[in-house]
Design a protein around this nucleic acid. Sequence first.
DNA 1: ATGAAAGCGCTAACAC
DNA 2: GTGTTAGCGCTTTCAT
Lengths: 341, 341
Amino acid sequence: MTAVHGRGPSPTLEEVAGLAGVSRATVSRVVNDSPRVSPEARTAVLAAIEQLRYVPNRAARSLVTRRTDTIALVLSESDTQVFSDPFFARTVRELSAALADTELNLVLLTARGEREQEKVGRYARQGHVDGVILMSLHRDDPLPGTLAAAGVPLVLSGRPLDGREVCYVDADNVGGATAATELLLAGGRRRIATVTGPGDMIAGIDRLAGYRTALAGAGRPVDPLLVAEGDFTEAGGNRAMAELLARAPDLDAVFVASDPMAVGALRALRRAGRSVPGDVAVVGFDDAPVAATADPPLTTVAQPLDEMCRLMVELLRRRIEGDEQVAARVCATRLVRRASA
Amino acid sequence: MTAVHGRGPSPTLEEVAGLAGVSRATVSRVVNDSPRVSPEARTAVLAAIEQLRYVPNRAARSLVTRRTDTIALVLSESDTQVFSDPFFARTVRELSAALADTELNLVLLTARGEREQEKVGRYARQGHVDGVILMSLHRDDPLPGTLAAAGVPLVLSGRPLDGREVCYVDADNVGGATAATELLLAGGRRRIATVTGPGDMIAGIDRLAGYRTALAGAGRPVDPLLVAEGDFTEAGGNRAMAELLARAPDLDAVFVASDPMAVGALRALRRAGRSVPGDVAVVGFDDAPVAATADPPLTTVAQPLDEMCRLMVELLRRRIEGDEQVAARVCATRLVRRASA
DNA sequence: ATGAAAGCGCTAACAC
DNA sequence: GTGTTAGCGCTTTCAT
C-alpha cells in the first residue's frame, strides 16, 4: 500500500469507478446520494472511495451544476475595524449555526476601500459563490449596486440607507427604540436623554427616530441638549454619557442605542456619582451579549438575531433558486427588563 | 441594445470570440495577458469583453489550471469570539494589504467546534482554495493535521503548541518578553509582576517564558505571588492586576502580556491609587493598536505584524508552487518606549 | 500571431 | 439499476 502522502494528483471519479467495478455514473450517483443505486454497488463504491481517499473535484462539479454551495458574508466597511463589534461576531456565529445542517459553506469577505470592494465584486461575479449576504454599514457603498447589477443573489443585513430596492433583513430598530423610550416615560422620567449611534449607520438613525417618536407621542419636545452621538463602542458610550451629564445635569433617564455603549454609560454615571436606576434610569439595545453582565444589570431591547440570520439564509436560498420576488423583512424586537430602568 | 439585467447565462469565451472575430484561444490569451497577441486582436477582444460584460468562469478555469487564486484564513477556535480580539482584526487587515497587489483573494473561514472544523476541512480539500493560513489558537486542534495530511498547503500563524513540524510564522514572543522584563530590571525595579496570557495559548506561554528568562538571567527568583493569568482582554487585565495588587502590594513593576490587558491593568492601578510609572512601571505587548492612546502612554513590545503577514503569504505561495522545504520563521520584536516604564 | 482540437472531472439525460 | 454519451467553459499544446 503506497502511502497517500501529501499532494499529487487526487483520484478521480473514473479511478473510483474502476476500482469498484462500476461506471462513473454510478459513482456519481453514490456521491450525490441518488436512490437509484443497488446496495451492493453502493457498498463497493463507498469502499473504493474510502480506499482512494476520493474527494470530488469542486471545479468540475460546479462547472456543470453551476453551483458552488458557498455563500459569502461580505463586510463592506470604509475605515475602522468592524470585527471588534460584538454584533458582527454574533452574526457570524448565528449564520454558521443556520448553515450547520446544510451543505452550504460560509465564507467571510472583507472589503475596506474601493480596491478591495472591486476585488470582492469580481470574486462574487466570477462565480466563486452562489450568493452574498452583505453587511454594508455606511452610506455610498457601491457594492450592493454592483452585485445586484451583476445578477449575484443578494440579501442585505440591515435596511439600506439609501432606500434602494433590495432584499434585506433588519430588526425593528424604530419600534424597539420607541418601546425603550416609552418604558422610561411610563416610569415617570421627565428628562430622558439618548446616546445615539453614528449618524451614518441605519441602526443609529432608526433608533434615534424611535426615541423621537416616543417623545412626540407623549407630547414632549426633543431637547438637543439631551442627545449625544456615540459610535456603538463602550468608550464612545462613556464619552457621550459624560458629555450629557455635563450639558444636562438634571437628566433622569437615558436610552443608549447599544449595549456596549450602555456599559460605558453606566461607568460614566457611576463616576459622576449617579445611582442607577435611582437617579438615572438606563435602557440599552442588545447588539452584544453584555447586558446580563452589566453592573447593574441592564434593561435592554433584544433583537432576535438567530431568527434574523435564519431568515437571511432562507431568503438568499430562495433568490439563488431564482425567486426574484423575495421581500425584505423586519423582525420584531422585545424589551428585556432588568434592573437599570 | 438589450439590457443585461440580472442573471441569465453569462457570456462565454466563445461568444466573445465570435463578436471579436477571433478564436477562443485568442480571447483566452488576451484575458490571461499573454504577449502573443496582436494589438488589433487585443483591441477587438477587449471591446467585445466590455460590450458583453464578460467575466471568466472560475470553475472552468480552475478545472484546467487547478488553481483557484484564493487562499483562506482559517480561524479555529473552540468556544469564544476571537473576532473581538484586535490582534485578529489587525492580521486580517495586514493580510489583505499583503494581497492587495496580487491576483490572490482572501476568504475567512471560521471553525468553532468539531462539526465546523470538518466542514472547513472538506471545503479546503475539495479544492475551493489553493492554500490555508491557520490561526489555531488552542491546543488539540485537529485541523492542522487534517489539512496537512490532505496535502493542503498550509502556513500557521503562530508557533504550534504541540511542536509538530509545520511551517509557521511567529513573533519572537520569548525574546520580546525577555527584553520587556529586562527593561524593568534595568530601571531598578525589584518586585516585578506579570499578567500573563492564557496558559493554553502559545503567545501566553512564550511571553511568560520570556519573563522567567529575564528574571533568571538577573539571578532573581520567580515569585508565584507576582504571576496572574489574564485572557488577553482589557477586562481580564483589570481583574488580574487587581488580584496582583491584593496579593503583593509591594510590587513596583508589571509586564503585561498584551496591550488590551495593559490598558485594563492601568485602570486597576489608577483605581488603587498607584502612580504610573512612579509607583509601578508597566510594559505591555503590542497585540492591539491601543498602546499609543493609553493613559499614560504605554511602553510596549511591538510585533512587526505587517512583515509577518507578508511573510505568511510568501511562504504559502511557495508551498502552493510545490516547494516542500519552506521553513518556519520567527520575526523579531522591538521595545517601543513611551512613558509608563 | 492565430486557430483547431484535446481534454480538465464531473453531472445529467438517455438508452438499456 | 446501470452504462454510455454529451457537454459545462476554459487553457494549452500543436500546427500553421
